[in-house]
């Protein structure tokens, strides 16, 4: 796990989450921007997935449980696509709020993942 990359990822997830929730609460249904931004969060997660695959091979080992880390990452990867799917099926303001809630959940899970990787075992 790369510290600066994950930090950027958390900030992006929080920003997208905030923007989606505000958009939803002012009454906008999901549009290309909010759906796209949520997909971007997913894309960053996929990159995180690749990084986490390679990192241990290049000596960047987690201090904590690798299994727990992968469990978080695996669950995290499901959430944005599920929210986007919901947003495509149900085009109301509340679907935009759900996109935001999903991104916030991703930020929290990434934070937990950094704790597992950098802090848990030390």
């Amino acid at each position: 796990m790369i510290e600066w990359y994950t930090a950027i990822e958390i900030v992006v997830a929080l920003l997208v989450g905030l923007v989606c929730i505000v958009y939803g609460l002012v009454g906008r249904g999901p549009n290309d921007y909010t759906l796209g931004a949520t997909l971007f969060v997913e894309l960053l997660l996929v990159a995180q997935f690749v990084i986490a695959l390679i990192a241990p091979l290049s000596g960047n080992m987690p201090t904590g449980s690798l299994l727990e880390f992968w469990l978080y990452l695996g669950v995290a990867l499901i959430i944005p696509p599920a929210a986007v799917f919901w947003g495509l099926v149900e085009r109301t303001r509340w679907s935009t709020v759900i996109l935001g809630a999903a991104c916030f959940a991703i930020a929290v899970m990434l934070y937990r993942m950094t704790a597992i990787w950098f802090i848990q075992g030390t």
Partner: peptide
């Protein structure tokens, strides 16, 4: 309506 957000958050928490 807003109940959908509630259900979505429940689903994430359940997971």
């Amino acid at each position: 309506g807003a109940g959908r957000v509630l259900i979505a958050v429940y689903a994430i928490l359940a997971l």
